[in-house]
Design a protein around this nucleic acid. Sequence first.
RNA 1: GGGCGAAUAGCUCAGUUGGUUCAGAGCACCUGGUUUACACCCAGGGGGUCGGGGGUUCGAAUCCCUCUUCGCCCA
Length: 867
Amino acid sequence: MEIPAKYQHTKAENKWYNYWLDNQFFHSTPDEREPYTIVIPPPNVTGVLHMGHMLNNTIQDVLARRARMEGKNVCWVPGTDHASIATEAKVVNKLREEGITKDQLTRESFMEHAWEWKEKHGGIILEQLKKLGASCDWERTRFTMDKELYDSVIKVFIDLYEKGLIYRGVRMVNWDPVAKTAVSDEEVIHKEEQSKLYYLRYQIEGEEDYITIATTRPETILGDTAVCVNPNDERFTKYAGKKCIVPLVNRAVPIIQDEYVDIEFGTGALKITPAHDENDYEIGMRHKLETIDIFNDNGTLSEAAELFVDKDRFEVRDLIIPELEKAGNLVKIEDYTNKVGYSERTDAVIEPKLSAQWFLKMSELAKPALEHVMNDDIKFHPAKFKNVYRHWMENIRDWCISRQLWWGQRIPVYYFDNGEYVVASSIDEALRKAEEKTGKTYTEADLCQDEDVLDTWFSSWLWPISVFNGINKPDNKDINYYYPTNDLITGPDIIFFWVARMIMAGFEYRKEIPFKNVYFTGIVRDSQRRKMSKQLGNSPDPLDLIKEYGADGVRVGILLSAPAGGDLLYEDSLVEQGRNFTTKIWNTFRLVKSWNAEDKSQPKYAATAVAWFEQKLAQEASKLNEQLKSYRISEALMTAYTLIRDDFSSWYLEAVKPPFGEAMDRTTYDASVNFLEQLMQLLHPFMPFVTEEVWQLLREREDGESLMVTTLPNYTNEDASLLEDIQVAQEVVTAIRTIRKDKNIGFKEELTLTVSHEIPCTEVIEKMGNISETTVTGEKPEQSIGFTVNNTSCYIPMTGAIDIEAERKKITEELDYTKGFLNSVTKKLSNERFVNNAPEKVVAIEQKKKADAEAKIAELEAQLKAL
RNA sequence: GGGCGAAUAGCUCAGUUGGUUCAGAGCACCUGGUUUACACCCAGGGGGUCGGGGGUUCGAAUCCCUCUUCGCCCA
């Protein structure tokens, strides 16, 4: 077969991915083998692939492919979540372009539009993952709104409600005025901002005296129902029990005292707006204050504000200041830095707002979830995230799970008779429960289902269970076999949103951990450490990268600089390195393939090289195994990288290469093909395509065979004797190459070597250094350049003149260094406290260092004398 | 304001219980090279007071204290 000089990655990627699919290699069904399960962190169904997904899914694929080659039954479940806020926003936008607003539609017809949108756009990201080589079991693809998963969510809501863990309450929530829904605490991102602190004076009722407050939100004064001071603040004791007048609206409100107020901050007097600030709300509760909600759901001012009605809250902030100034209430304005909460989904400024929502009590659920992470039943990689996790778990707050949206699981609560309600999985069940509850008879028309849906994370937290239908059918074959899953690969940014809650759900519904290991990836940034974002335009399109550098190249590029939990600074040079390595493998393959084997005796150098590489391969394979087992994925890749590039290509292949035009002996040839085959196996999880291509071309293969379903051999490195010997030989060869370079002697010119003692593997040294003869003698040859390796003097005789002074200088320098070293070792050994306290082993090492240094000094002195 | 983490070569990072010549890797850099697998390459090379200071120890990149700077989370 003709082997092309250049590896054609796109062709190979399409060919082999389809081949794997056709042969069902990704598909898993329970059997007697040990399972290895990963559930994908479901990407947002509205999303397209970005660099973060690339990193995350490459790691999952490495682990999945490796486990498959270890003989495990691997099941990697793909899927997407319904992303209620994001998807609903997209559907609303699309409808708007068609001239339709959401409130013109019924809930049912809106849902039809949403499903239509999902069918059209929802599969994109999963198709993109295939280009990366992801070995997911596509037959198991799940979506959080699929019937089984939808029903699971409803079942869990009802169950938790019945256990008394879900309650409805009027609370201060984070209101997103763009999405017009409540969001959870975790969905609020606090950003530091330059803003202003406004000092406003409120007149004391009936007096020509004023009390000055400081606020960052002057527009909210319209909702003020008190001014509060600290009871210990003597400046304000004279106002106790009095009232003051809220400017512009001229409402008299009490001046109250509460220790919450910080005497040092601002003026020491605080305006209280119970409807629009969490702390104010609590103070309001304590002092039984009136609550005036001055905002509409979309962030404009309501009738209750009296002024600026229907104007936006930020517009009002600008409008109200001149009015306050005109009225004589503005004292001063200062620059001020504060933190403002933004909606994670819409980037709107969050408005604290009182509203009735559904909450899940967290304290009991958190207990086992905390314990089993702290005791390492679930291991975090890197472990430093345990601290972050503990802190959150120990200060956990109830979870607001209702959202004022339509796209999602509708809350299974039915209201009737002015505020009575029942929780039921269907209207029929609701009717029955309602009748049981009151003894009356109802029709469907009497019942009204809650308009709201559940938070998307309330679906995602069940994911490792619900993808196997383990909520609806807790004893089915799949859940029993695949659960708990093995590894979860995710970003640290969703440790609370998702990881923590999955652990809680795992214990609540399976009495077991949902996964054994959590691997936190870093965040992909650009070379200036900025997060990749569409706005900045600093994120490359992953599919373009794959097209240009190949999927394998991109995978390698992204893994090379991605230690667990550490950010990845993306640059094109990384994927270039990946592409270059792909090419290197291809050329290595072409060289091996170009050799002709015939029956003849094996040269000694080849026999030594084969024996050495066998040991080297075993050593590096077990190192790689250790690295993967401890989730040092980029280090494992680097092990394979240097093994192939340096040890195999630069040393082994050069050592066994037959003289130009000659055939190779069959023993060496077979060994070389074997080695390359095994290297492809080791590398396959990282670079699935090029390794499969090489593996398929390396020998005749049957249809249906594939590298990806081969099993890794057990590497045992019982005889590592040659490893040190070759290392010495490599040092000698390097020294010879340096001399060639210094003296401008081309590789083709043969040299001879004289050594003071026998050195190992001279046949390899001769081959690699183009040495015609090695002589062992205590005599230094005339006209030669020397170097020392392993306490042996080596000389290369020269035809030209030798710079004696330069030689002397070189040796003297090395001698001085070694003497200095010997001195420090001797000092250490003559320190009684060291000899008495240090372990024997350490002392023995020092003694060996001493002996070695002395031998080397003797050798160097002999060299000097010989000059 | 509270908590957590980090600081090692120009860059990105390893460095496991303190002890092999431990100061490392990759990239970048410098020098040489038309060796018939590969210039997307090969060969050779330079480069760090392990953030500053103090302490424990026979011995500290590693443990303790402190300061500085940066990052993340929470309020």
